[in-house]
Amino acid sequence: MSADKEAVVAAVEKPVVAAAKPKPYPFWLGGVAASIAASVTHPLDLTKVRLQTSSDKRMIASMKKTIATEGVKGLYDGLTGTLLRQMTYSMARFAAYDKIKEAMHVGPGPPPAWKMALAGSCAGGIAGIVGNPFELIMVRMQADKKKYGYRNSLQAFFKMTRDEGPKSWFRGVVPNGIRSILMNASQLGSYDWFKNALLGSGVSDGPILHFFASLGAGTVATTVCSPADVIKSRVMNAKGSAGTMEIIRTSLANEGPRFLFKGWLPAWTRLQPTTILIFLTLEQLKAGVDKYRAAGGTHL
């Protein structure tokens, strides 16, 4: 056999070595990115909750009322609850979404939209249960922490457990879980969809692409989640034994179906920059991890 033929045979018979699977990013990156974003947009989140749970009608008027009665620092009431919520709920949803998406799609190319939506739904269900106690504390602290005697998130958690028992951890878990499922299917799934669509249309991967992908994801998520978000806030802020269905019936009787979208504008105004900040921050954190690993770092 000639040398050329032997070279061809060797090339054909040479075993194909599978590309090394990339090392996953640290599971806590999503929680850190969400905490940074939530710290910036907290006044809007607080105003959204107060619009949903009080007689306030307008976003700006509600913010002025808060400043007039509590000062500028009043716009940051419940910030510790928000941060604790992000490092439980958001950390769980981002970590679970990546794992579930990876398990569901092993073929070439990006996963189809339905797989991303399903992965987001599953991740949302997990995160909704894990983060429910701290979601409850966050809502109460933002609505009126003086009414509950809360000083910070940890004191609030122990006080709630002592006064209301561990069962209080799961108050509002059904509407919160539904909202979490809808949020993550629409936000995480649509962000990936928009990102892949933009990449496919020739937009280069970078902050501009991440901005527009998150802009689309925030609008989709706000609209899809508004009804569950309003119901969740009202259930969590209600005292006594009023159940979810009773609260829905009362709200429908008093305000009509439009109550389901009460606070949509502040919700969009809050969620949109939050979504943009989360994904821009998360992408930059991932880029930082990549640079760290390329430089020989082994701790991330």
Results as ranks from 00 to 15, higher is better:
R58F: 15
R58Y: 15
M59T: 13
M59P: 00
M59H: 09
M59L: 14
I60L: 14
I60T: 12
I60G: 06
A61M: 14
A61W: 15
A61H: 15
S62L: 14
S62A: 14
S62H: 12
M63R: 11
M63D: 03
M63K: 14
M63Q: 13
K64H: 14
K64T: 10
K64E: 12
K64A: 08
K64G: 07
K64Q: 12
K64F: 13
K65C: 06
K65P: 08
K65W: 09
T66E: 05
T66M: 07
T66R: 07
I67L: 03
I67D: 00
I67T: 07
I67A: 04
I67G: 01
A68C: 04
A68V: 04
A68K: 01
A68Y: 02
A68M: 06
T69G: 12
T69F: 13
T69A: 14
T69Y: 11
T69W: 09
T69P: 10
E70G: 14
E70I: 05
E70Q: 15
E70A: 10
E70V: 10
G71E: 02
G71Q: 08
V72Y: 12
V72T: 12
V72L: 11
K73L: 05
K73V: 03
K73G: 04
G74W: 00
G74R: 00
G74M: 00
G74F: 00
G74S: 02
G74L: 02
L75N: 01
L75W: 02
L75F: 03
L75M: 04
Y76Q: 00
Y76D: 01
Y76H: 05
D77N: 14
D77Y: 13
G78A: 06
G78I: 01
G78D: 01
L79Y: 09
T80W: 07
T80G: 03
G81D: 00
G81W: 02
G81Q: 00
G81Y: 04
G81R: 01
T82R: 10
T82N: 08
T82Y: 04
T82V: 15
L83P: 05
L83K: 06
L83M: 07
L83F: 04
L83R: 06
L83E: 00
L83I: 09
L83D: 01
L84D: 00
L84C: 07
L84T: 02
L84A: 08
L84W: 05
R85H: 14
R85C: 08
R85K: 15
R85G: 07
R85A: 08
Q86G: 03
Q86S: 05
Q86M: 11
M87R: 03
M87N: 05
M87Y: 06
T88A: 10
T88P: 00
T88C: 03
T88D: 02
T88G: 05
Y89L: 03
Y89C: 01
Y89S: 01
Y89W: 10
S90F: 09
M91G: 13
M91N: 12
M91E: 07
A92K: 04
A92V: 06
A92Y: 12
R93I: 13
R93V: 15
R93N: 14
R93Q: 14
R93S: 13
R93P: 06
F94K: 04
F94A: 13
F94S: 12
F94R: 06
A95V: 07
A95E: 11
A95P: 08
A95Y: 09
A96D: 09
A96P: 01
